[in-house]
Amino acid sequence: MKFLRFVLLAACLATLLPALPAHAARLRVVATVPTLAQLAREVAGADADVEALLAPNQDPHYADAKPSLVIALNRADLLLFNGLDLEVGWLPALVRQARNAKLLPGAAGSFDASRWVQKLRVPASVDRAQGDIHPGGNPHFSWDPRAGAAVAEGLGTALGQLDPEHAAAFRQRGATLAQQLRALAGQERQKFAALTPAQRQVAVYHDSLVYLLDWLGLQQVATIEPRPGIPPDPAHLARVVGQLKAAHVAALLQEEYYPRNASDQVARLTGARLVVLQAGPRDRTDYVSYVRGLAAEIYAVQSSK
């Protein structure tokens, strides 16, 4: 009874509280994954605060919908998310709890990065027997500087709509970053094009590097997961070993948040090198350096073959 009285009293007090300021001095941007957060930081410059909901080494498919994230969303002016259902397991529940009209679908503060990107692997039909496929297309584009460029430009415009005073600066930074990224994309692609066809073959753990491989002109000859999201069985791994040996694959690529037992064994049996990629930039590494670093890491292994 006492408890109920407390709740009622608290509710009454709440109505007396003055409304919280609708706009802080600077825009508050919340990005789901750190790679997109870094992109946003560079477009926003000093004119907005950017925070990421997840850590760089966290698998964005399987994050917990922690209520603490509701607070960040409740106060945000713009939500930058990957889209294509990458965050479907946790983000919708948080957005609904956040009670923030600015972030609802269709609002100016709801920024679906995937809308700016040329999508790859859009399935013609969807059947769960195919594994955990994404009906809108493969969502793992955030490592592709071509996609990054398009998102940076879009973000420049979107931030400008929310804060017209700094619109020109947002657009300018977005355009500059996009230019740098497109230049980087061209340089790296050229560098990889000089590799022999055999050196351009790789194996991966999950179907999450299709944009990266498409950018660098690499060919995915084998996948540790038999279907997206389904862990491998021994028979499948035996087939993968055969595929890697036949193609003399130099590198087995995977993000840090995927299991390594099967990959270690396959690497050991085939002589391929397991390259564990950082899934997000650390310590505010800029986006260009981060993406260039990924390409350099892969190039070092492929060219050494």
């Binding site: 608290a10 509710a11 919280l20």
Partner: peptide, 16 residues
Amino acid sequence: QVGWLLPLPWFAEAKL
């Protein structure tokens, strides 16, 4: 039901 997200730096929600 009415729910209220308390204006605190951490998550606290009251429902009635």
